[in-house]
Design a protein around this nucleic acid. Structure first.
Length: 505
RNA sequence: GCGCCCGUAGCUCAGUGGACAGAGCGGCGGACUUCUAAUCCGCGGGUCGGAGGUUCGAAUCCUCCCGGGCGCACCA
């Protein structure tokens, strides 16, 4: 069972107090190391003034060895002050966990598939797709840290109207003609025309290269045309009806907003929605306990469609999950850049990474909650890159790496040689938050909590560093232990959002 | 019209029931013979869009209103 020092403390305090309680970190130092509002919660049921309950709980809790003192405060909080022994054992637990720290604690392991990006291969990966990937990949990494088995999948269309226009555009250039008005016109179309063969696999290869550079690795790639072969077998299993010469799914009866067309009137060709059906079956038949779709807000209208299909086919809709995120707006010199695939002025992810770097790109796109639209001034992001929080956090990591290099094989111990300083205690408490931060980010499907926490860790470390020497201090062994744990926590946080943890800067 | 998302410091945003609301950037002023100054310390900056309601307690939950974004295809 991986360490969670705060949870363990809460359990111990709760046992002593005879009530389940949660701990929070008060904003004011006078309010103790941790505080609980449990007395306020109990007041109603016990018909007793919260201050009175708080006083009783404080007394009970003081019996614990790690508690120096506890006191009732405010409207009915219990403020808890801890002895150095607690900080030592918390630090020891963190170090023992090593790479596993921050994760675990899940009841059962799930097989999870995160399908993301899934942009059709009609052009290079754009910054808008990158947010999809940065978000989906961060969620995937949170699942992995928690102990689940995750596969990342890319689904793409290789047939249909859009792809026909794309191929025709490349063919036109190869014949020395201009692509048609509704075709594709970017410089990349000319690059593809210079190569031989079907441009679709060539385009995909390039997209995969961009995504690898963005540090997203896909385990599997799924083609729409291949999945469509199962349509004749699967469509009869759906609840459908004929209207206006088309075949409709009665999805509104299964939780969707509306019914969807599966086969067009006229040529009876399958729609994109039809292809969703064999694809969903394919996912569930492959045994994923949870199939996650990552969709941009412009597709949020279909967020209930997937679970509706699952219901229609008799699968548990709980296995299907849709994550929606808001768009990215890039500005350059204050002017908004439109991100349409067919225009020449689109922002490619590769260009974006060229300008601000992979680390800053991943950071910026994971740093905001999925419900928040992201505004990035590219000029500012590149120009002021030295002041980006991502470098602030990386710098803390590099500083620690430097200290540990200089320390060589000096002794390391979580047991302090003397009384702990305020900065040391604050840092340990901060490190102890990681399991809760990671668990919360996973539950909310909101990875932004991780980079925000990483800034706090770096903050506490830089302050500690400024006040105290590590090497050749009378607390060297303890401080080396603190450095090791801090480095591990920062590295973990950076990794969760796909950012490198540098040894030097 | 209906649905989803957003509205918090000059700017970009954290913060989904707790104590006087936070960070970065920007502004002003300080700190390097010291393990990395890409750092640290201080100052200034807010009717948390508005109005009601629930609660011992609301930026956070509920209702309504205002403002902005995105959807409401036999495109994907």
């Amino acid at each position: 069972m991986p360490a969670d020092p705060v949870k363990e403390l809460a359990a111990a305090l709760g046992a002593a107090a005879g009530a389940e309680l949660e701990l929070e970190r008060p904003g004011e130092p006078e309010h103790g190391d941790y505080a609980t509002n449990v007395a306020l919660r109990l007041a109603g049921a016990r018909r007793q003034p919260p201050r009175e309950i708080a006083a009783e709980l404080a007394e009970a809790v003081t019996e614990l060895e790690v508690v120096e003192r506890a006191e009732p405060a405010g409207p009915g909080f219990v403020n808890v002050f801890l002895r150095d022994e607690w900080f030592a054992s918390a630090l020891a637990g963190i170090l023992e966990d090593g790479d596993a720290y921050g994760g675990g604690g899940v009841a059962g392991q799930e097989r999870v598939q995160v399908e993301m990006v899934s942009a059709n291969p009609t052009g290079p990966i754009l910054v808008s797709h990158a947010r999809n990937g940065a978000y989906g990949d961060a969620v995937a990494r949170l699942f992995e840290l928690a102990g689940h088995a995750v596969e990342r999948e890319y689904y793409y269309n290789d047939s249909g109207g859009q792809m026909d226009r794309f191929r025709a555009s490349v063919e036109a250039v190869r014949r020395g003609e201009e692509p048609s008005e509704d075709g594709y016109h970017g410089a990349y179309v000319r690059d593809l025309a210079a190569l031989k063969g079907d441009p679709v696999p060539l385009m995909l290869k390039e997209m995969e290269g961009t995504l690898e550079r963005f540090r997203i690795h896909f385990d599997t790639w799924r083609r729409q045309s291949e999945l469509e072969e199962r349509l004749p077998e699967l469509l009869p299993r759906l609840d459908t009806y004929e209207k206006d010469g088309a075949l409709w799914a009665r999805s509104s009866a299964y939780g969707d907003e509306e019914d969807r067309v599966l086969l067009r009137s006229g040529d009876r060709s399958p729609t994109y929605r039809a292809a969703d059906v064999p694809y969903l079956v394919d996912k569930l038949e492959r045994g994923f306990d949870r199939a996650i779709y990552v969709l941009g807000a412009d597709h949020h209208g279909t967020r209930n469609w997937y679970a509706a299909v699952a219901r229609m086919l008799g699968y548990d809709p709980e296995r299907v999950e849709v994550l929606v995120y808001q768009p990215v707006h890039l500005t350059r010199g204050g002017e908004q850049t439109k991100m349409s695939k067919r225009r020449g002025d689109v922002v490619f992810l590769d260009e974006f990474m060229d300008e601000i770097g992979v680390d800053a790109a991943r950071w910026y796109l994971a740093n905001r909650g999925p419900d928040q639209a992201i505004d990035i001034d590219v000029d500012l992001a590149a120009e002021r890159s030295q002041k980006n929080p991502v470098y602030y956090v990386q710098y803390a990591h590099a500083r620690i790496a430097g200290i540990l290099r200089n320390a060589g094989d000096a002794a390391v111990s979580a047991v302090p040689a003397g009384p702990l300083a305020a900065e040391e205690r604050e840092l340990v408490k901060r490190l102890a938050e990681l399991p809760a931060v990671a668990a919360d980010a996973l539950v909310k499907r909101g990875p932004q909590g991780v980079p925000n926490y990483a800034i706090r860790v770096a903050d506490d470390f830089h302050r500690f560093y400024h006040e105290h020497r590590v090497l050749e201090s009378d607390q060297q062994a303890f401080r080396l232990a603190l450095c090791r744990a801090t480095r591990a926590v920062i590295a973990r946080c950076l990794d969760l959002v796909g950012v490198d943890a540098p040894e030097r800067m």
